[in-house]
Design a protein around this nucleic acid. Structure first.
Length: 453
RNA sequence: GGCGGGUUGGCGGAGAGGUUACGCAGCGGAUUGCAAAUCCGUGAAGACCGGUUCGAUUCCGGUACCCGCCUCCA
């Protein structure tokens, strides 16, 4: 079997992946803050981790991989959304959570084994903060509890920066109650109108980073295998998680491999809320891009590289999937091909895996093509409706066949050509062979432009 | 300012110190009433300047440009 190799942000090298316990491989992905629709950047790490999850299940067995992805349902963005809309927080988080599950499912992602919600782990967070205070890594000040970055020698290791350098950058908020400008909030007081929980430090709510530390510990223990997210989470979010977890549980190693995916670009720029150039997964689905097609576009680019979303890529992806679905229709999937597993095992080289799939398609091994594609979450039965969808154009096919039969005798093909070009203009695919005539909806098909029969 | 990533053929996009990546598009052919689809074949590359080497697009150094993080963001 090919050894799995992964790029570990912690060491900045591609390393052999060796799980702590092959019968219980544990991976954790930072999930969404549920206050709005997931944008297309949010989908990238989900798809990356979904492929990783499928590959690990292939290697270690389905029952031996545990995948957790949290929902952050306590956050000031949610509070702000509630205040501006007048809707209860619980209603917003419940609705957004379901949107997220629907949208990620539409892209062909499996659901993780665990999907913890932050508000269900407030007790664990408080306990962890208490442990940090008692161990001398955190302190209370003006109702806040802050992590003391100077107390953790390893602070900055994950993101490759030093506390002194960052302070030199002088772009941190310097609250008067902080011992060091880089200290970050573990707990903060809540005004009466904001969500809050009773704690040893008064009524308040957790800070930005503590939830992932508390939830991963509750589900996976002091040490687990892989933790991931977008590269923009490397600092400060993941750096702070490391600090909290390693100081609260020094007997463990927290995450041993860190996987970070590069950003998704639109027109060569990072998609971001502040730039206003982002759109949601639902926007793409509503524009008529099939979930499977969107997924294929993501897989075309290696996860460690910036990826550009373009309509051209989507068209190319659709063409490939259309072809493969045609080749594999009715074929029973066998086992994934060794070359596809090898490509994925090489730091999730999805582009290489797709190339291997082309090889299987060209060599006629459709059973392996189908099985291998499923390792990438492609060519699954439930993802193929986009091809079947649309109008039944067999009446046009019959009419065209009849006209052609007449034309064969009369040698006058003008009526055949007229109907054919009208169908093509409406975006239909027309195939006339000796065996018969086929008319199907093609790319850009518009039923309203069909000619009358 | 500090730290990190990138620059491959018309486009997208990988691997490998020496032997075709792959896909899309293009071109030639087969097929077709004409097309489409399909099949066969085919040209085209690695920002710039140095270094190491028998040999570098691949390793090392520098230059230019692009992008990201350092502030809510995946």
């Amino acid at each position: 079997m090919t050894a799995l190799r992964l790029r570990n942000t912690l060491t900045r090298k591609v390393e052999d992946f060796i799980p702590l316990d092959p019968s219980n491989v544990r991976i954790y992905l930072c999930g969404p803050t549920v206050y709005d629709r997931a944008h297309i950047g949010n989908a990238r790490n989900v798809i990356v981790f979904d492929v990783l999850y499928r590959l690990l299940r292939q290697i270690y067995g389905e029952g031996h991989v545990n995948y957790a992805r949290n929902f952050t349902d306590v956050d000031d963005k949610i509070n702000a959304r509630s205040l501006e809309s007048g809707r209860p927080i619980s209603e917003i988080t419940a609705e957004t959570t379901q949107w997220y599950l629907d949208d990620m499912g539409a892209l062909g992602n499996l659901e993780p084994d665990h999907m913890p919600r932050a508000t269900a782990y407030i007790g664990e967070m408080i306990a962890m903060i208490e442990a940090l205070i008692s161990r001398g890594h955190a302190y209370e000040a003006e109702g806040h509890v802050l992590f003391d970055v100077r107390s953790f020698a390893g602070y900055g290791k994950l993101s490759g920066r030093s506390v002194d350098d960052m302070i030199a950058g002088a772009r941190v908020e310097v609250a008067p109650y902080k011992r060091d400008p880089m200290d970050f909030v573990l707990w903060k007081p809540s005004e009466p109108e904001l969500p809050g929980w009773d704690s040893p430090w008064g009524r308040g709510r957790p800070g930005w980073h503590i939830e992932c530390s508390a939830m991963s510990h509750a589900l996976f223990g002091e040490s687990f295998d892989i933790h991931g997210g977008g590269i923009d989470l490397q600092f400060p979010h993941h750096e702070n998680e490391v600090a909290q977890s390693c100081c609260a549980h020094p007997e463990g190693s927290f995450a041993r491999y860190w996987l970070h995916n590069e950003m998704l670009m639109v027109e060569g720029k990072k998609m971001s809320k502040s730039l206003g150039n982002f759109f949601t997964v639902r926007d793409l689905l509503d524009q008529g891009f099939a979930g499977e097609v969107i997924r294929f576009v993501y897989l075309m680019t290696h996860y460690t590289r910036p990826m550009d979303w373009t309509d051209t890529k989507a068209r190319e992806a659709e063409g490939v999937l259309r072809k493969w679905r045609g080749l594999t229709a009715g074929v029973e999937a066998t086992e994934p091909a060794a070359e596809v597993i090898a490509a994925l095992s090489d730091d999730l080289n999805t582009a290489g895996a797709i190339a291997a799939l082309h090889g299987l398609a060209n060599s006629g091994d459709y059973a392996a093509l189908k099985a291998s594609a499923r390792l990438l979450g492609l060519l699954e039965d439930h993802m193929g409706d986009w091809l079947k969808g649309g109008a039944d154009l067999s009446a046009y096919a019959d009419r065209l066949a009849a006209l052609r039969a007449e034309a064969m005798a009369s040698k006058d093909f003008s009526a055949v050509d007229a109907l054919k070009s009208a169908l093509l203009e409406a975006g239909a695919e027309v195939r006339m062979s000796k065996a018969g005539v086929e008319v199907q909806p093609g790319q850009g098909f518009d039923e309203s432009r069909l000619p009358a029969l």
